[in-house]
Design a binder for these strands. Structure first.
Lengths: 227, 227
DNA sequence: GTATGATAGACCGACGGTCGGTCTATCAAT
DNA sequence: ATTGATAGACCGACCGTCGGTCTATCATAC
């Protein structure tokens, strides 16, 4: 044998590529970012890059995974908290997402053009896929708890969680469209409010919870983004 | 003045490119189809192609539009039929989709690999976008009718329609995943049944309709695809 | 000192898209 | 009816970009 691999050092160097790629994807979008751009940003070589990643798509997967990891890190403790009821947990999750976004409003507003670009579709899809795969179990646990608490009337937690995730992703998609349309002045604030309220209402009904318990976003957040 | 543009002839020639592209996308996926492939298929030249289309993406848009046009052509008459109640209309729409797919089961099973491929994401996204834009008005009309008939309790038809479409697209996405997983033998038929039933149940609840009125697919269709 | 990880960078092939140019149908003026 | 101007339809060589490969080189741990 000879030289041994240091996993920590390896991961560290790999992360440099991931971080650089994340910045570039945020500013230009995935398709508009070339591998060479990442190389230039780090002063690295093709050989180095392909030593750590199989392909450009592999790099994207790593970027998405890292971001979702961050989200899971925030959400998981809320879900595990034994002192919270199921509805409280859902409210924390939604509230947490809103807070996260509000705190980064400038960044996100700058990123949105690249995000919705046609040839950024792969990124959006990867996000959907990873989000469903990683968040489903957490959602299912909340639903299960709610059923046990008797505050929800719904079917099997796993299936219902999947349906709710479809809805949340749909709401997110809709919100993005609405943001763009509102900016362009083609719709009113009230239209936005009504649309997102419909998603919240649907959330309630699917769970069989009391009406209005899950507004996708609160009034203040809505004003912040759409007014 | 000079030579005049014959819109009919122009459209006819343009359609040839669209049809060829549709075949190629179905067999290989969008990314794996090069513009040259389309050219070879028709015996046409680069110049001819770029005379009719701005870009490869422009061609894709045309293909998706044509397919959705076909679907609208089938669904629109059902929605316009004055002799049907709202629930009947929804059942016709779902039934029509199932029939359409069942009649083309071999084709679709062959297409699925290309469809779910990572670099076919643009196609799937375009489908989502166009489907939402074109089908929303039709769905909204059915919801509106159901509210008038007093069989639904739901919010503004436009918003609810959008939510329902998110759900339908989510169900479609889930069904595709389930199909692949079932084929791979990693899940049981009952899992599939339960998952899709959850989407049907959610559909009911959002509309405030009586339970079980909108099974996304019937037992026979489910057996056909997942057994 | 040698096996292996890490890095460098020349190079390749495919692809989307451009561009100068040809051919032909149509219309207006003669 | 002839002719010349114009514009649609089409051709295919060519270009730049980009993802990915391959060989060579250096550093380091054993």
């Amino acid at each position: 044998m000879a030289r041994t691999l240091d996993p920590a050092a390896h991961a560290l160097r790999r992360d440099e590529f991931i971080d650089a790629a994340q910045r570039l994807i945020q500013s230009r979008g995935y398709d508009q970012m070339s591998v060479q751009d990442v190389l230039d940003d780090l002063g690295a070589s093709k050989g180095a890059f392909y030593h750590y990643f199989d392909s450009k798509a592999d790099l994207l997967t790593a970027v998405v995974d890292q971001i979702i990891d961050g989200a899971i890190g925030v959400v998981a403790p809320m879900v595990a908290d034994p002192g919270l009821t199921a509805p409280e947990k859902f409210q924390r999750v939604f509230g947490g997402i809103a807070q996260f976004k509000n705190a980064r409003i400038e960044l996100l507003q700058g990123v949105i053009q690249a995000w919705i670009s046609d040839d950024n579709a792969i990124v959006r899809e990867k996000f959907r896929q990873v989000a469903v795969r990683r968040l489903s179990p957490l959602m299912a646990r909340i639903v299960e708890q709610g059923l046990a608490e008797g505050v929800y009337t719904a079917g099997p937690p796993g299936s219902v969680a999947r349906v709710l995730l479809s809805l949340m992703l749909g709401a997110n998609e809709a919100a993005t469209e609405l943001y763009v349309a509102r900016r362009a002045g083609t719709i009113t604030f009230e239209t936005v409010q009504q649309m997102l309220a419909a998603y919240g209402e649907a959330f309630d009904r699917i769970l069989g919870a009391s009406s209005g318990s899950y507004p996708i976003t609160d009034e203040a957040t809505l004003r912040l983004w759409f007014d």
